[in-house]
Amino acid sequence: MFSGRAIAELFAAMGITHVVTIADSTIGAWHPAIEASPDLQLVRVCREGEAWAVAAGLYLGGATPLVLIQCTGLFESGDSLRNILHDWRMPIFAVIGYRSYLNQSTLPGDTCLVFTEPVLDAWNLDYRLITSSAQLSEIREHYDACRLAGKPGVALVAEGKA
């Protein structure tokens, strides 16, 4: 839906300094552009629970991190995000890929479509669903609104085939 270049330019314009991430087939295609950006540092982690914690350390140290993971990683990383976003109330923003939302040909009946939004609701995360390329600017609008409110937020970006 979005090119890596568009995403990298968006993150840089948002003032993001570090993108803490694990690839999926959509997000991974953005990595080269993010890595090539002089304004962004890509930080690779091995599991999504680490991502929230690395972002927390970056935030505490004065950087402006963003977590970039797939919804499956959201499911995996619940306790870490609970601790960082709710116990410690760090206003970390995430862009989360919504697997199979636009195309279920690879994984018919993908249960990511059943659980992703209820899980975001369960974690009290203010998310904006992004389903078309015309909505790129909405990611920044939602980020700015969350930042102004001093709270975490999520841009839930629809993905195609897994």
């Binding site: 570090h18 803490v20 540092q41 930080v43 982690v45 629970g49 680490e50 929230w52 914690a53 690395v54 972002a55 927390a56 350390g57 970056l58 935030y59 505490l60 140290g61 004065g62 950087a63 991190p65 306790d79 870490s80 609970r82 601790n83 960082i84 116990d87």
Partner: peptide, 23 residues
């Protein structure tokens, strides 16, 4: 210092990684 209490057990090294990169 950051006594990580309450914690999500096991995340202290990751927080340290982020802090070390930021500073």
């Amino acid at each position: 210092d950051l006594p990580l209490v309450p914690s999500s057990m096991g995340t202290a090294p990751s927080i340290g990684l982020g802090l070390a990169l930021a500073q």
